[in-house]
Every structure is written in C-alpha cells, then in structure tokens.
C-alpha cells in the first residue's frame, strides 16, 4: 500500500485527526525509510493521538508501550510464565524423559509472555508500535530500544533470536522529562507538535465532537486560546479543550456569556492545579468569556 502525502492527510482527517502537511510528510517518509518517528511537544497537544490515528489509517493494530522509570526487559520485551512453568515441571515429573527434553519443553514458546516490543516485531502484519513518553524510561532502556529499533530483532537466551517478520511503524513520544540521547534522535525522524492555532483548534473540536454547535466551538476555542496567554503553570492543552467543550455540551451551555458562575465551575476541566484555579477568578472568566463571544 503506497500512500502519498495528500492521501495520508485525507485518511487522517477521516479518522478525526486534524494534521498539517508536515506531519503527513513525516508519516510518508516513515513508511518509505522504515525509520521511527519521534514526536515532541508540550503535554496535551495530541502526541499520543498521532499513533492512534496512524494505526487507524493503516488499519493495523496499535501496540502501546508506556514507559516509566525502572521499566525493564520483563515488562517491555518478554517474560516467562513462571507459574505455568512450575506446573509443567510438576506434571512432567513422572514422565520418563531426559532433563534436556524437559528443559526444552518448559522453555517452549507457549510459556513465553510477549510484552509490547516482542509482540510488535513478531506480528505478521506490521503494527504501529507506540513507545509513549520514552523520556521517562532510564538510559539503559533507551540504549536497548535503540538496538531493537536498528536491528528489529530480539534475542532470548533460551529460545534463540526472534527477527521481525515485518518492520513495525514505530512512534516515540517525549515530553522532555529527560534529554534523549543523540543516537536515538539521529535514528528517528523528528516532528514537533505545537499548540494549534485558533483555526486549527476549531477544526479539531469540530472533528472530535461532531454534534457541537459552531458558535460554541468558536467561543470555546477563543476562550482557551486567551486563557493560555494568562500566567499559568500548566497551560491547558488540546485534550483539555476537548474535555471542556464536551462538558459544556453536557451541562447544556449554549453561550459562554450567559452563566459566568457555571462557567467558572466548569473550569476544572481546563485548570488542573489549585494555584492555576486561584489565578483565574470569576472576574477573569467573565472578561475572557466576553472577549470570546
């Protein structure tokens, strides 16, 4: 299946992801050069969504590996199913077999629990592998991942080497918790996701919440865009905008200017720290709502 940029853009739009031509180009290249795509950007701009949308566009499963500090091979690559192995040993105890046979039996692929990385490279049809928040994993894991991403093979001492039958589409996201190694950066294609412009954010809200009225969308987006300019510690991302818009529809708000009190209360969808909530009192809400309308 060859996809050019326009086709990718169209298909992303069809699954509800509003993308720019730059991202579409990155996806085309990613398929063409078989290289992973590293996506960076502030929290809540929809980095993870790219992978989900890509999986839908390519009609292939999404395998997600959430990284965290201390992530190790048994959680990311594979693990033996110890309980079943122990049981199998017990069952085979009375059987008249040699120790080698028994060993071969319990280290059979049946007893192997495939974790995301191994799962991704052993699939017939190339899946989308999302390595989420790679910056949270430690450097050892990053180095290991780099190795997997260049060779697409994993060696299991008891079984041998598993080589990828199809090269998965790898998407890595990073929030910048830790600086990534230059080697990993060079291995990947790069895309930086900015907070969307007003027009783009409106398109996103409309795409995600099809039932919402256009007038409200415009107000909501203008309000959030203005709110981002306020002095906040955690600026609301696109995910927050969507939550808030959905909440407003849910509580039946048609116009932001009618009920400042309810509006102020609903801000918990946008402002996620107590400090930020204190920084936006009801007067500010009224002012922003007035401007947005």
């Amino acid at each position: 299946m060859t996809l050019d940029r326009e086709e990718v853009l169209k298909r992303l739009g069809a699954v509800g992801y509003v993308a720019g031509p730059q991202l579409a180009t990155a996806i085309v290249l990613m398929r063409q050069l078989s290289r992973p795509l590293l996506i960076e950007g502030e929290a809540g701009v929809g980095k993870t969504e790219v992978a989900k949308a890509l999986a839908e566009v390519l009609e292939t499963p999404l395998i997600r590996l959430q990284c965290y500090e201390g992530l190790d091979a048994s959680a990311a690559v594979y693990e033996w199913d110890y309980q079943r192995q122990l049981l199998a040993i017990k069952i085979w105890e009375s059987e008249d077999r040699t120790a080698e046979e028994k060993e071969r039996h319990i280290f059979d692929e049946d007893f192997l629990l495939k974790r995301p990385l191994l799962k991704a490279i052993s699939m017939e049809k190339p899946p989308v592998l999302l390595v989420d928040e790679i910056d949270r994993a430690d450097e050892e894991f990053e180095a290991y991942l780099l190795e997997v991403l260049s060779d697409f093979q994993i060696s299991i001492p008891e079984l041998g080497t598993v080589t990828a039958s199809a090269i998965p589409y790898v998407v890595l996201t990073s929030n910048g918790t830790r600086e990534l190694s230059d080697a990993l950066r060079r291995r990947c294609l790069y895309h930086y996701v900015d907070l969307p412009s007003e027009a783009k954010e409106m398109r996103i809200v409309t795409a995600r919440l099809p039932g919402i009225e256009n007038a409200l969308v415009a107000q909501v987006v203008r309000f959030v865009q203005a709110l981002r300019k306020e002095d906040l510690h955690k600026k609301p991302g696109v995910a927050e905008t969507l939550d808030w818009a959905a909440a407003l529809v849910g509580i039946g708000v048609k116009d932001l200017r009618t009920d400042p009190q309810a509006l102020h209360e609903s801000l918990m969808c946008l402002l996620k720290t107590q400090e930020d909530q204190a920084a936006v009192p009801i007067e500010v809400v009224e002012r922003l709502a007035g401007k947005a309308g």
Binding site: D4, R5, Q22, T25, V28, L33, L189, Y190, H191, Y192
Partner: peptide, 24 residues
Amino acid sequence: AELGHRDGFRWALRCLLCASRTDW
C-alpha cells in the same frame, strides 16, 4: 517527494534532518 512542490521537499527534509526542538 514531489519535487515540483517546494514545500514537500522542505517538509521531508525537516523531519529527516532535525533532531530536537531547537533544530525544528
């Protein structure tokens, strides 16, 4: 990439040759 489309060329090189936000 469609070479006639200069931006297509630019987009392709951008995601290929950048490695950090500063580069971007």
